[in-house]
Design a protein around this nucleic acid. Sequence first.
DNA 1: TAGATTGTTAATCGATTAACAATC
DNA 2: TAGATTGTTAATCGATTAACAATC
Lengths: 213, 213
Amino acid sequence: MYRNVISNSVINRLPRYYRFLGELKAAGMTRISSRELSERMGLTASQIRQDLNCFGGFGQQGYGYNIELLQSEIARILGLDRLKPAILIGIGNLGRAITMHINFESKGFKLVGLFDSKESLIGQVIKNLPIRSTSTIDEFCRENLPEAAILCIPKNAAMELSDQLVRLGIKGFWNFSHYDLALKYPGVTVENVHFGDSLMTLSYRLQNDDKGV
Amino acid sequence: MYRNVISNSVINRLPRYYRFLGELKAAGMTRISSRELSERMGLTASQIRQDLNCFGGFGQQGYGYNIELLQSEIARILGLDRLKPAILIGIGNLGRAITMHINFESKGFKLVGLFDSKESLIGQVIKNLPIRSTSTIDEFCRENLPEAAILCIPKNAAMELSDQLVRLGIKGFWNFSHYDLALKYPGVTVENVHFGDSLMTLSYRLQNDDKGV
DNA sequence: TAGATTGTTAATCGATTAACAATC
DNA sequence: TAGATTGTTAATCGATTAACAATC
């Protein structure tokens, strides 16, 4: 079956729809029109209807959208109903915070392994997972077949490890390093989180925006 | 003087230019053409020239761009040369990791205060900064005039604190919470970092992309 | 049925890419 | 000078918004 390619702009909005619908559901609402949702989210009603219709007609003329139904459809589209095994590499401050702070199960993943190269950390347990030596990644991946790797390591370490990880079948990276994985492995999915870039963007706006003047 | 409005797309690319130029400089290079930079970054040469010319003509025909000069121009554009005082609120795993992990000084900010509401944390010192009680924010801000606030707190706490922070003169938020500050305070700059959304996007791609098939 | 709201097509807007004269 | 590469205008492409017939 032919499937339209969905633009990045649309994909990036899906998690936000999912969150908003969850809040509406929690508030006891059962239905909503694209117009009301647009006002709450700061979008246009047109855009919401266009976005949703990339995936199918989830609404009903004259009625709007059933909140619970729509949310579960978006969950399915996002793949949240299949927990993909993931490993996290680099248990520094950031890796530790990610491990403890993120609810992987509600976002389509299951964290199955933690790795670090620092001897003193090996064996320590976080969230019921022991920290393993990076030298055991090969063995671990052949047994557990993780699909995603979360890189909380410096650029150099990412450069050294990425070939191995791709060879071991990693299909997606959640990349906190400054290594441009997407350039080197076009067949692999990379989602970059660059704190520094985000903070510099804020600096730009504080420096240059003259809002409200 | 009239200043063109720069599009978000351009602004979001600036930190990445800055990073790449830093690497080239560190590698001992002194000049680069838009074509060569485009190949290294995975962009088009046209786009690079268009982006840079939003801010001025930093290149030279027949030669290209001086790497050091261009990087320092971008630093200036990003406002990295003025360290804006910032406070961080919420010293959980995430707030702690941000405090320790991020080099604020190289990104246009100076972290001047840490806050949490949890009694047991008050007084503890991280990166030479004592954790203060959120009840002292008013006093602290009137003395130290922070321009930015980093929110590492849950949605509810963000909802409760934001009015106060805006009233105290906070002009920019680095927002890790799920509270949509931008909707409520149109005059204030908000840079959202939504880990969960980013991870769900990765889930979508692992579920739906059939790359290389 | 009448009113409301979707799904979808058409129009607009903005961002990216291509082309080329200017010039180092 | 000749070659290279910018700065900038024009063309293209894609995303957003508007409009409206279909229909619940």
